[in-house]
Amino acid sequence: MYFPLTDARYEAAFIPGVQLKPIPSLWGHTAGAAPNPVDAKFLNDNIRAFLAAGPPKRR
């Protein structure tokens, strides 16, 4: 596996305000390129929501 979810969870723990959203796909790391419509919808919906939320609040 190129990008194990356990590694991503570990790394995310060090990034303030991070939102880890694993792509629910059987395509592994290539799911990020949206090889099928279900992956593309997941990516587009989540990116749209992230951008609509605006920048994180500073403390």
Rank of each mutant, 00 (worst) to 15 (best):
M1D: 13
M1Y: 08
Y2H: 08
F3K: 02
T6Q: 01
T6I: 00
T6F: 01
D7E: 12
R9D: 13
E11Y: 02
A12I: 06
A13V: 03
F14E: 09
F14G: 07
F14T: 12
I15F: 03
I15P: 01
P16Q: 03
G17I: 01
G17R: 00
V18G: 00
V18F: 09
V18W: 04
Q19E: 11
L20W: 07
L20A: 08
L20C: 09
K21D: 09
K21Q: 15
P22L: 11
P22M: 13
P22R: 10
P22C: 11
I23N: 00
P24E: 06
P24A: 05
S25C: 15
L26G: 14
L26D: 09
W27E: 06
G28Y: 07
A31Y: 02
G32A: 11
G32D: 08
A33L: 12
A33M: 15
A34Q: 13
V38M: 05
F42N: 14
L43E: 12
N44D: 06
N44E: 14
D45M: 07
N46C: 11
I47M: 09
I47Y: 13
I47H: 03
R48A: 15
A49G: 02
A49T: 07
L51K: 02
L51Q: 03
G54K: 05
P55S: 14
P56V: 14
P56M: 11
K57P: 00
R59E: 06
R59M: 06
